[in-house]
């Protein structure tokens, strides 16, 4: 069983990483998604009206979360595994779930920082929102849990560090650009549309956009919650400290 004290320790161990590497984190979680927001605004064929701006902001928030949960957290998990740090945890009377929860808390704190920073930037860029705080928090949390679950799965199954990094990098960006996050679903080829609209990033973007508009997308949140349950359950099952 996971223990709160152990989860806090795991979180603190990884927080030291953030303390030392705040620059690259900001680059990944803020600057890149902000740039994507500006880029999407600039090339938008329908003009940068408020509705589009809100959609692009939602897309950038999801992009930031995807980079944090999959690319960055995935990298961290892979690094722990392939540099032998995970072995240190395996020597302790520690439940693997405590380790995963500690990492998740770390990811969620980063996500909160990244999202807050993006919302401030958006305000400076003139995006007007009627944000509902709780639906936004719930949406961000569900996206993080779902995508972090994917990270855990990749980190436990990868055969090498390079294989895992390639997967997390591809998935971190790919899941955002394959989903109708920055563009309308109408532009996606029909055979892809059914799949892309059900990607967690697409569901997340819709849920975040609804929250930014002052409402909530309960259906999308519920599906996202179910996906989070599946990915995390699988992640927990695969995260073992004992090899066969």
């Amino acid at each position: 069983m996971p223990s709160l004290s152990a989860i806090i320790c795991i979180f603190r161990i990884h927080l030291a990483r953030l303390r030392a590497e705040a620059g690259p984190f900001l680059l990944a979680a803020l600057i890149f998604p902000s740039a994507m927001y500006l880029f999407a605004n600039a090339i938008s064929s329908s003009g940068a009206d408020q509705q589009n701006r809100s959609r692009f902001l939602a897309g950038s928030i999801v992009f930031s979360l995807s980079l944090t949960a999959i690319s960055w957290l995935g990298y961290l998990l892979l690094e722990n595994r392939f540099t032998g740090r995970l072995k240190l945890f395996a020597t302790l009377p520690l439940a693997p779930s405590s380790y995963v929860f500690g990492i998740l808390v770390f990811g969620i704190v980063q996500a909160a920082l990244g999202c807050s920073a993006l919302l401030i930037v958006a305000r400076l860029l003139g995006v007007r929102t009627q944000m509902s705080v709780w639906p936004l928090l719930v949406s961000v949390l569900l996206i993080m849990l779902c995508l972090s679950g994917l990270s855990v799965i990749i980190a436990t199954r990868a055969r090498s560090f390079s294989e895992g990094s390639l997967l997390t990098d591809s998935l971190g960006a790919g899941l955002v650009f394959l989903a109708p996050v920055y563009y309308s679903p109408a532009v996606i080829p029909k055979f892809l549309r059914a799949v892309s609209e059900w990607l967690p990033t697409a569901l997340g973007a819709r849920a975040v956009q609804a929250a930014l508009g002052g409402s909530y997308a309960l259906g999308d949140q519920m599906i996202l919650g179910a996906m989070a349950l599946v990915t995390l359950s699988l992640g927990f099952k695969l995260m073992q400290f004992r090899e066969n």
């Binding site: 030291a16 740090r85 020597t91 009377p93």
Partner: peptide
């Protein structure tokens, strides 16, 4: 049993930022 043991693995990494 791990509660009764102190273990030094042959190859383990440390957390450099701590």
């Amino acid at each position: 049993v791990k509660r009764k043991m102190g273990i030094t693995p042959q190859e383990a990494g440390v957390f450099e930022t701590l």
